[in-house]
Write a protein that binds this DNA or RNA. Structure first.
Length: 562
RNA sequence: UGGGAUGUCGCCAAGCGGUAAGGCAACGGGUUUUGAUCCCGUCAUGCGCAGGUUCAAAUCCUGCCAUCCCAGCCA
């Protein structure tokens, strides 16, 4: 297979939405594609939104079309500017560019209001004074049809007059609402005269106090799409039942454009949650340290964890686009993250649980400078300096007094390779009064730097740092937030929180080169995993690294089997 | 029990009447100064079930079954 064919097969995803678009282009229905990503600025974006972002922006990109970022800000009671700002940043960080300026549903409030009056004039909308409870009763149930509101047959003049007074602020919140006149006996509850304007005397982040009536999502969304010339309005499955309403509005007002709404399934990920309410609960109850805690499935949390936007995009492309409700395994995400980091993260050595090692046959004051590659497979990444000296640290897990053949690390009386340095042999164990191992006395083989020893084979390779040429660091080991695959289905999802989702190591030792690390820099701490310098708390004076993901660990499997 | 959708390997997912792609996971094996990476191999006589149409069905038809969504003046 040639490179171009290979690239083609990798970068040409196919899914049912693209099939529809291909047909629309082939038939001449459209000559250019326009999509939109329409979040409500009422919270932080999470992995589920990332899917919608990738689909909407990704399709626009691939078809050389445009994608708008539009804040669906029709409910002033829930929305905040801070959320809008954070959302825009997250979209950019993920690597996407919206067309032109950011749009807002609120930008269309005047037009929307005009369309509402048009519906009234056509006898297709009316002001209803039923209370919310009454309206619920009149609506019927899933199996019983609803019945008409007593206010359904007001005259056009009365309706217009009432709506204008609503708009002028003459009535209290909830006292009346404008409804579309459709069909109270429809099997689709969304068509049973849905509310299209409600009174809310609230300050809006965009329009301030100009309005005291606000259009609902159903009325606003399709019209906003049409105003913006959206060709394909891509949303999640729960809006399937709303599509007839979406179409009804566009069919009954004076507007040319009629975008096609297409629904796809949400992204569900095992061992996590994407409910805004539940995520908020984690923050409020201090289960995590904020919305951007590295354990959170938010875009900002994953960023702080060390997931790159490329890895997130790759993961999402691997999950596909269908209408099937699915739950993706965490291993797929971790695979994307490892694949990205494996190529791009420079290597370094960090000892998480230090055990002192004295090289008895190494001169007291000698220090050797070694150029170690930043990446074993990619020379272009260059080298960094590491230092070998008489006193070193290795990890406690890399030594056993005695072990079977499967254990490929340091054992009393046996030899092991120190990564990028010499082969050492352990001669003696120093223990404290309680019998804890406090130090190892080893001897190095001076002919083993860059070459294999003669006459014997070291058992394995372990990482290390020099005592005098390493720094103390705080290392946070993150694990999955929940112990169960589907925490949302638990009676109490908080009881499924993994108690070991964070382990803080205060006195790890990291190689000297890591003082150069800048916040958000990623590394592979060899044999330990991928880590990133904390975006907010790391500095040259206070080294803080977050574990992004572990390395694949086949030893753990072998060890578990015994 | 109304309406809307969906059922292809443990998890995703192609397939669109011509005899089941691919990825992740798993399991073997090789290379390796990371138990990483990389490489090689194994992994659905089967497509929710039952009938039917056809030379030929995951793909068409009929009937079941299972799961998800909908009764906010939320989005």
């Amino acid at each position: 297979m040639s490179d171009s064919e290979n690239a083609n097969s990798v970068t040409k995803p196919t899914n049912f939405i693209r099939n529809i678009i291909d047909k629309d282009l082939a038939s001449g229905k459209h000559t250019a594609i326009k999509t939109r990503f329409p979040p409500e600025p009422n919270g932080f974006l999470h992995i589920g939104h990332a899917k919608s972002i990738c689909i909407n922006f990704g399709i626009a990109e691939d078809y050389q079309g445009l994608c708008n970022l539009r804040f669906d800000d029709t409910n002033p009671a829930k929305e905040e500017s801070a959320y809008a700002e954070a959302i825009a940043k997250d979209v950019q960080w993920l690597g996407f560019k919206w067309a032109g300026d950011i749009h807002h549903s609120a930008d269309y409030f005047d037009k929307l209001y005009g369309f509402a009056e048009e519906l009234i004039e056509k006898g297709l909308a009316y002001v209803c004074e039923l209370s919310m409870e009454e309206m619920r009763t009149y609506r019927g149930t899933l199996t019983e049809t609803g019945k008409n509101s007593p206010f359904r047959d007001r005259s056009v003049e009365d309706n217009l007059d009432l709506l204008r007074k609503m708009k002028a602020g003459d009535y209290e919140d909830g006292s009346m609402a404008l409804r579309a006149k459709i069909d109270m006996s429809s099997p689709n509850i969304n068509m049973r005269d849905p509310v299209i304007y409600r009174i809310k005397k609230a300050h809006h982040i965009r329009t301030g106090d100009k309005w005291c009536i606000y259009p609902t999502y159903d009325f606003t969304h399709g019209i906003s799409d049409a105003i913006e010339g959206i060709t394909h309005s891509l949303c999640t499955l729960e809006f399937e039942d709303h599509r007839p309403l979406y179409d009804w509005f566009l069919d009954n007002i004076s507007i040319e454009c009629h975008p096609q709404q297409i629904e796809f399934s949400r992204l569900n990920l095992e061992h996590t949650i994407t409910s805004k309410r539940k995520l908020n609960q984690l923050v409020v109850e201090n289960v995590v340290d904020g919305w951007d805690d590295p354990r959170m499935p938010t875009i900002s949390g994953m960023r702080r964890r060390g997931y790159s936007s490329a890895a997130i995009r790759d993961f999402i492309s691997r999950t596909g686009v269908t209408k099937k409700v699915h739950t993706v395994e965490m291993s797929l995400l971790e695979n994307s993250v490892r694949e990205d980091l494996g190529d791009n993260a420079p290597r370094a050595m960090a000892v998480l649980k230090p055990l002192k090692v004295t090289i008895s046959n190494y001169p007291e004051d000698k220090v050797e400078e070694i150029n170690a590659p930043r990446h074993p497979q990619n020379e272009d990444m260059g080298t960094r300096k590491i230092y070998f000296s008489k006193t070193l640290f290795i990890d406690q897990a890399d030594f056993r007094e005695s072990a079977n053949k499967k254990y490929k690390r340091l054992v009393l009386g046996k030899a092991v390779r120190l990564r990028n340095a010499y082969v050492i042999t352990c001669d003696e164990i120093v223990k404290d009064a309680e019998g804890n191992i406090t130090e190892l006395k080893c001897r190095y083989d001076e002919n083993t730097l860059g070459k294999n020893p003669e006459g014997y084979k070291p058992k394995g390779v372990i990482h290390w740092v020099s005592e005098s040429h390493s720094k103390a660091a705080t290392i946070r080991l993150y694990d999955r937030l929940f112990n169960v695959p589907n925490p949302a289905s638990e009676d109490d999802f908080l009881s499924a929180v993994n108690p070991d989702c964070l382990q803080v190591i205060e006195n790890a030792r990291v190689e000297l080169s890591l003082v150069e690390a800048k916040p958000e820099d990623v590394f592979q701490f060899e044999r330990e995993g991928y880590f990133c310098a904390d975006r907010f708390e790391h500095s040259a004076e206070n080294l803080v690294f977050n574990r992004t993901v572990t390395l694949r660990d086949s030893w753990a499997k072998i060890e578990a089997k015994g």
